[in-house]
Design a protein around this nucleic acid. Structure first.
Lengths: 204, 204
DNA sequence: GACCGAAGTCATCGATCGATGACTTACCTC
DNA sequence: GAGGTAAGTCATCGATCGATGACTTCGGTC
């Protein structure tokens, strides 16, 4: 994100540029591997402004995470096709191509998992965004366990695509994954399976 | 790992202590969050010996990873009950309790995923230890994709337990997960399901 | 017990990090 | 156009990092 040739003196714009650069860097390299000088350079701004506007690198990270979360909420709110919950979560896990810049919403937390607070934040995010919604769909024993098992699968898909770059999964699109996902979700959640063929799903 | 009161001058023992301390620290906090001074303190040894014996922090990390891999290989070789492949991989993913020290074999790589070489190493490890074995079990279209989907689930279980500390999954034991796992594995791999009941697995 | 090589210790380097505060400059108001 | 305020700049701090090399001390050998 190289700086647009020059920017007028504009506190709001500078803050926004820093926040955007921070989000990109943190999602690409994690907290530790990103320096405030990196972020400031990307934003075309003096590093000292980070501390003037955000107080510390830590608070900038928190605000960047909050900003990403806000984007997600707003995006989810303006959802015009309210698909069923599992499909929506699959789309969330598969968000964006692996080679593209930006990174998955969870990427920054996963890449920063060396820090305990980021691990806790990751657990909270998983609970709020995945487990909570999935638990409501289960009406069987082991409700939470079933929900967490499906959450773990979505999390694993995200990690495999965003971090490990597993080849087949990285290049797959949602439509290729969807039939497998629906069958597995039916098994784990105990909901009526879409096409219960014991020999495997109808391969596309 | 506090030092045993004193150690005679013993190059091999010092190297081993450093390697053990490095494995523990890297598996607990990742590469960046671990300093050579931390490792040396745990081993009860002068930090300079790390560079004398291993050349650099990076090479110490590589040797620590290699050492952990050797342990796994040897452990797998001396497996006296050659269970079927998916079950063996589930046990590998569930290895050890979340609260205990030590950490999952993949923990060091996951915690260090801010470094690109660690991400590549993670992908290679997943391929060698999971995808390769699972692919051979599939005799359907999308062989690799099916294998990677199951790998992603095992990876997600590991991340949920070791990093995110998802409550239900963290406290579960292999026996609780196994029935769900076998059903899902059957769906993804296209192998004969153990008890193909469309309403969900027989809950324990 | 003198000696010598290896194991271990110590002081310190150069780089980089997050962070601070005094300074300069641009823009708005009157 | 003068002046004041806020935006942006700059030099630099203290801590910590990985890494180096000279130094000291132990332990086996003759």
């Amino acid at each position: 994100m190289p700086q647009p040739p020059k920017r007028k003196r504009d506190r709001a714009a500078t803050q926004a540029a820093l926040l955007a650069a921070a989000r990109a860097r943190f999602a690409l390299s994690g907290y530790d591997a990103t320096s405030v000088r990196d972020i400031a350079r990307d934003a075309g701004v003096d590093p000292a402004l980070i501390f003037r506007y955000f107080g510390s690198k830590e608070r900038l990270f928190e605000q960047a995470a909050q900003s990403a979360q806000d984007d997600r909420d707003q995006e989810a709110a303006s959802e015009d096709t309210p698909e069923d919950v599992p499909t929506r979560l699959l789309h969330a896990a598969m968000r964006q191509a692996p080679g593209a810049e930006g990174g998955h919403p969870l990427a920054a937390l996963l890449l920063s998992s060396g820090r305990q607070d980021c691990r806790e934040r990751l657990g909270a995010r998983l609970h709020d965004d995945y487990v909570r919604a999935l638990t409501r769909l289960v009406d069987l024993p082991d409700r939470e366990l079933r929900a967490e098992l499906l959450t773990a699968w979505l999390l694993g898909i995200t990690v495999a695509r965003s971090l490990a770059h597993t080849p087949a999964l990285s290049e797959a699109c949602v439509e290729e994954i969807s039939p497998y996902f629906e069958q597995v979700a039916a098994v784990l959640l105990g909901t009526p399976p879409p096409a219960a063929a014991p020999g495997g799903p109808s391969a596309p």
